[in-house]
Design a protein around this nucleic acid. Structure first.
Lengths: 123, 123
DNA sequence: TTGACAAACAACCATTCGGTTGTAGGTTTG
DNA sequence: CAAACCTACAACCGAATGGTTGTTTGTCAA
């Protein structure tokens, strides 16, 4: 994976690592909102919400479009999917481990049913 | 959602928002590793890697088990799945928006094929 | 028993983060 | 035009983050 890609992934997860930003993302995925509309929903300054929107935008999780004097934010489901895909890939890594463990167990069972071997004078 | 849950989610995404931690998680999902084994893979101090492992552990993304003088870390795929599930839920929110838009369009097409209405003296 | 290795933990430092206030510019509306 | 509104942005502040070094404790091996 490229350095730039890693920066992108860092930005995506970091953007999602704040509850206010996750809430904003949920709203703009469900419907377009102006920054003011969003700011009205939270007990913090307009500038703070504006910054959160900026972080989500830089991460690519949301896009803005101008409409008169308002800036309308809309969630980008593709970016959300790309994050989900990374986690799925991690799950595949785990599946590989389980597959290897299963193979080991199978090999052990096999050898247990094998004909007696020369180095087994134990009992 | 509970406050404690939000703390948990914050911790999960924050833990994933660092490339070194994502790499560590990939390794321990594929196979158990001692902290020393992990530390050997990165160009940073043992203590730094130890901290990263600690962050992943607190987030619930990995568990440690003692073996002699080593501490073996193993990835928890359930935690990874829970994060993926949250993103899927976000995608569902977006689907709801699309469904509503489709409904609107359908309604508009319907009214276009409706019999002429009283307030349409335009042409 | 004495080293050598693995881990935990504390203290410190520079940077980033999440929040604030204040100022300035573009757009509607009266 | 003037007033109100929406947004952008800079400067600042306390807290958290990611890294370092150093010390301590527990475990294995010679």
């Amino acid at each position: 994976m490229d350095e730039v890609d890693k920066d992108k992934v860092d930005a995506l997860f970091h953007a999602l690592a704040d509850r206010t930003r996750r809430d904003i993302l949920r709203r703009v995925l469900a419907e377009e909102h102006s920054v003011s509309q969003l700011a009205a929903k939270y007990e913090m300054s307009f500038a703070a919400v504006q910054k959160h929107v900026g972080v989500l935008e830089k991460a690519g999780l949301l896009t803005k479009r101008r409409s008169g004097r308002e800036q309308l934010a809309s969630g980008d489901v593709q970016a959300v999917r790309s994050v989900a895909a990374m986690l799925t890939e991690l799950e595949h890594v785990w599946r590989g481990r389980i597959a290897r463990i299963d193979a080991l167990i199978a090999a052990e069972l096999d050898s247990a049913s094998d004909p007696p071997q020369e180095d087994r004078p134990c009992p």
